[in-house]
Amino acid sequence: MSTAFRQYFELCGSLLYWLFVAPFRGKGWRLGHTFAQIIRIGVHAVPMSALTALTIGVVLAMQSAAQLAKLGATAFVPGLVSSSLIRELAPLVTAVIVIGRSGSSVTAELGTMKVSEEIEALEVMAIPPMSWLIVPRFLAMVLMLPLLTVFSIYVGLAGGWLIGHFSLHMSTAFFVNHALQYVELRDIGIGLLKSGVFGVLIVTIACSIGLNVSGGAEGVGLATTRSVVVSLLSVFIANALLTALFFF
């Protein structure tokens, strides 16, 4: 356990150097590689994020409508959907999707490269693996997870609107007005901050575990499982801490 922590913090220290110091020493970010990762981590996750967010928006609206109808307060459905999505569900669910899709993929890819000596080959060719592999994945994750979260918020609200409009007979203007009424700019900022923190956690955990794989194919499998489990736990704990910090 202590070795894993040491490896994790070593990676974070090295990452800070390659992100903020190396570019001023002539070793800039590899934008081509970063763009490729943006496509893999972000763009390819759009359909799954959309479907998940849509179903969550629909379910939130249906569940809240069922309860609020008893009080004759279905007008609060848009606000409940929007505040739940923006503050909590969109950042968390998007992070969970990205852990499953991309965190696991990053660990498996780096782990396979490690056991097949590709990372050692990069080092020997004087191509720093941090610059070639890690920084592009970090930048892509930290940029794309908040963007995917914003996208999920919109799609989730659209799901809530489907129920509000077709089942609760709300006009679009009514739904939008009430959805926005209960949301402050601060909530959106905190939601994005959460997703940024989640992105940092997911990619650093995935990279640290992937770069330290040993034991061949079995090692890669175990590392991928560990990466997903540790990332999920870290994100859930960070979510609770950030919620406690900003909303209470």
């Binding site: 396979t112 490269m113 097949s116 000596e117 590709e118 080959a121 990069l122 020997v124 060719m125």
Partner: peptide
């Protein structure tokens, strides 16, 4: 210097 690894270690 150059290095030829036992497995080749080509980037897949």
């Amino acid at each position: 210097y150059g290095m030829l690894f036992q497995s080749g270690a080509l980037l897949q």
